[in-house]
Amino acid sequence: MNPRPTLLAVAHGTRSAAGQRQIRDLCAAVARRRPDLDVRLSYADVQQPRIGAVVPGVRDAVVVPLLLSAGYHVRVDIGDAVRGTGIPVTAPLGPDDVLLESLTRHLAAPARGGEQKAKPDEADAVVLAAAGSSDPAWRESVHALAARIPGGAHVAYAAGAESRVADVVADLRRRGARRIAIAAYLLADGLFYRTLHRAGADTVTPPLCLDPAVAGLVLRRYESALLTSAPAGM
């Protein structure tokens, strides 16, 4: 009997127990949707097992980066791990319309306790908060995503020296904004996500991986790889 094909998910890794649980729950949701797949979770940084340690033990696999950009971890950590194996690597989860729709939906959703969250057409300002990267293509994709949020959004980063989230929020306050919503372009809870709650905005959207639609996006990435380079036996 042939072993099940493997969807090898690769997350960044985090020290946050909540973030670790959220990523495991995302992979569990993927596995429930596709019981014919062996869904395995590995990491590019921080946590174990690392992608390089898992790849030698899998067959008929597709690597799906649970990342929002094709940055260093995709090019180097994942690229080095699969080099010479023939295992295909899909595009990362972002940018994608599923994530844009999730951000927009949560910006408009009621907050806990009945209080209404800021909506894109009601807030004085919406800030799209991303992790930060020196990759020009990644930064360009974040700005393009911000322009597609209804009403537009200001881009800010949770790390790096430029356009820090707290600084952008403070500047918007000085310019007269009274109600500011942060659209968190982050997949899971962790250090970066928690800084958004200390940035001075009125609301922050939840981590993207909590949206059930993201499990479907992971599977679409997997299936897209099969259309172009299916491993032997699939």
Rank of each mutant, 00 (worst) to 15 (best):
L7R: 10
A9E: 04
A9M: 12
V10E: 14
V10G: 06
A11N: 12
R15C: 10
L26C: 14
C27E: 08
V30P: 07
A31D: 02
R32Y: 06
R33S: 09
P35I: 06
S42K: 09
V55G: 12
V55H: 09
P56T: 11
R59P: 00
D60Y: 03
A61V: 09
V64A: 11
P65S: 06
A70D: 10
A81H: 15
A81M: 14
R83T: 09
P92L: 13
P92F: 02
L93Y: 05
L93I: 08
G94N: 04
D96V: 10
S102P: 03
R105A: 14
H106N: 11
G114L: 15
E115N: 03
K117H: 05
K117D: 09
E122T: 15
A123D: 07
A123N: 13
A123F: 08
D124S: 03
A125G: 09
V126K: 01
V126I: 15
A129M: 12
S133F: 00
A137G: 01
A137S: 15
W138Y: 14
R139L: 13
E140K: 07
A144N: 02
A144H: 11
I149D: 01
I149C: 03
G151I: 05
V155T: 06
V155N: 01
Y157L: 02
G160T: 01
E162R: 00
A166H: 09
A166S: 12
D167C: 03
D171M: 06
R173S: 08
R175G: 14
G176T: 04
G176Y: 13
I182W: 00
A183Y: 01
D189P: 02
L191M: 14
L191T: 12
F192Y: 15
R198G: 01
R198A: 05
G200W: 11
L210R: 15
P212N: 03
A213N: 11
L217K: 13
R221T: 10
R221L: 05
Y222F: 12
A232E: 14
G233T: 06
